[in-house]
């Protein structure tokens, strides 16, 4: 594959596609449309193949038919429930009984709601509250001043940030002022994320440019 002609063809193909996507920056054009069409087709195929082998074959088929009885978990037959729900989903294609396809949908939505309710409450609410509750300064008083300020900032920021999210109270008076402070903190958070993301995104572009100019054209060492 790495040998001679194949290598050059692969390089050119990759470069053609790379430039095609970049050409969108100027404006929508034929080249971009071709790349987009290829991308949609190839990637839809890719994911279906991946799902097919990883989920349908490895999880269902192997679990139900291939694995010897002795090696199966006690509840291996539950796999049939999954497949049954999947087949109910396909009933959409039959107009008369299409409404049955709401059952697997109801199953998924219900299960998701149930799972998220507890896990998010535990990790997003309880754990975060627990972690916020800590002394601002300790007995030794040897903490540097900026660390104490940092602790105050975290406590005040979390407090006022939460006030901003209150829905059932009008943001007026002292409450409104606290909400304003809360927005300040949210804005700093957003600014920080923005800065970090700019850094990562620039790296991605550098990587692509390096491909074009060193790997493909070999203009740059």
């Amino acid at each position: 594959m790495e040998s001679g002609l194949m290598h050059h063809v692969a390089l050119w193909l990759a470069a053609f596609l790379t430039l095609g996507i970049f050409s969108f920056l100027y404006r929508d054009n034929t080249w971009y449309k071709v790349c987009e069409a290829i991308f949609v087709g190839i990637s839809a195929g890719y994911w279906f193949v991946a799902y097919f082998w990883d989920n349908l074959y490895t999880k269902f088929w192997v679990g139900v038919w291939v694995t010897p009885m002795a090696d199966r978990p006690d509840d291996w037959y539950v796999l049939y429930v999954g497949a049954a729900l999947g087949i109910l989903m396909l009933l959409r294609l039959v107009p008369k009984v299409g409404w049955i396809s709401r059952w697997p949908l109801a199953f998924i939505v219900g299960a998701t709601a149930g799972l998220y309710l507890v896990t998010y409450f535990a990790s997003n609410v309880m754990l975060q509250i627990e972690d916020t509750v800590r002394p601002i300064f300790g007995a030794e008083n040897d903490a540097p001043i900026y660390e104490i300020i940092g602790n105050i900032v975290v406590a005040v920021g979390t407090f006022t940030g939460l006030i901003y999210f209150f829905f059932s109270k009008e943001h007026r008076g002292a409450f409104g002022r606290a909400a304003k402070v809360g927005i300040f903190f949210l804005m700093i958070t957003f600014g920080a994320s923005f800065g970090y993301t700019v850094m990562s995104r620039m790296s991605l572009l550098i990587g692509r440019m390096d491909f074009l100019f060193s790997d493909w054209l070999k203009l740059i060492k």
């Binding site: 550098i206 440019m209 060492k221």
Partner: peptide, 11 residues
């Protein structure tokens, strides 16, 4: 400008 800022320094 982004393109220039990224490409020029490479060489």
């Amino acid at each position: 400008y982004v393109a220039v800022a990224v490409v020029l320094p490479l060489s």
